[in-house]
Amino acid sequence: MSSTWRAAGATAVRGLAELMLTTGALLAAFAFYLLVWTNVQTHYAQADHLEEFRAEQRQHPQGRTLEPRTGDGLNVLHIPRLGVDWEWVVVEGVDLETLNDGPGHFPGTALPGKVGNYAVAGHRATHGEPFAALDQLVEGDKVHVEAADGWYTYQVTWSRIIAPTQVDVVAPVPGQPGRRPTARTMTLVTCHPRWGSTERLVVGAQLVERRSPAAGPPDGLEV
């Protein structure tokens, strides 16, 4: 083999090695962004929303209800099954930018405690992954909603895996579009599997208790 061919081969190998190193660095940076940085961003967004929510509570201890705007902090979810300190501010809206700040309330669905379906979506991976362990909820588990006008406790009644096209789970009567609601329900929606989006994991719950702001949180819940 001539020196020219050897030099060309060495150059090609070096080029391939540099390309692989560059690709590896880019993949590592992308993984860092997804697994670390998005969580940091969501953490700070949640801290801001929670501070605003608590300030509003101090200013209006009896609560007041305002028409929510996209991106507003609406209320706070507490799910003891997912941890004693599990709490997430629910923001208004379910577009991707809004969901990056935390779980999002489907516009047009009921507000907590009202007749109809209070429907919330959340990331299961990245951006704080609020619903990462949503599959751990079982029938009978409690989901507490800390709202401006009091506390609402829902009890899980069902869960299932569905196709992304089954959007009727967020209808006023879940799964029965067009039917007039008479019950006060909640639906939590996230991707399935955790690192995919081919299906949806959906958890349904029924309102079982309401407490006034003055009564404080439900028994056993620390805030």
Rank of each mutant, 00 (worst) to 15 (best):
A125T: 14
K114P: 01
G108Y: 14
A119S: 15
G113V: 02
G108E: 10
P103A: 07
D101E: 11
G104Q: 03
F106E: 00
L99Q: 04
A121P: 06
P112R: 00
T109V: 06
G113T: 06
D95G: 12
L111C: 01
F106N: 00
P107K: 11
T98N: 07
G113I: 03
N117A: 14
G116N: 04
R124D: 14
F106G: 00
H123R: 05
G104A: 10
H105K: 13
G102D: 04
T98Q: 05
L96P: 00
H105W: 15
T109W: 02
L99V: 08
A121Q: 07
R124L: 03
F106H: 08
N117W: 07
G116Q: 04
N117E: 12
G116L: 06
A121T: 05
A110S: 15
N117G: 13
V120R: 00
V115P: 04
T109H: 04
R124E: 13
E97H: 03
D95Q: 08
L111H: 07
L111P: 01
G116H: 07
V120P: 02
A125E: 05
H105Y: 12
P103F: 00
L111W: 05
V115W: 06
G102A: 05
G122A: 13
N100W: 02
P103G: 03
G104K: 01
A110K: 07
G102K: 01
G108S: 08
D101R: 10
E97N: 09
K114L: 09
P103K: 04
P107A: 13
N100G: 15
E97T: 12
D95K: 02
G116W: 02
T109G: 05
A125I: 14
E97S: 10
P103M: 06
A121C: 09
A110G: 11
P112L: 02
P112A: 12
G104L: 05
G104I: 04
G122P: 08
G108F: 15
V120I: 15
G113Y: 09
A119I: 13
N100K: 13
G108M: 08
P107L: 14
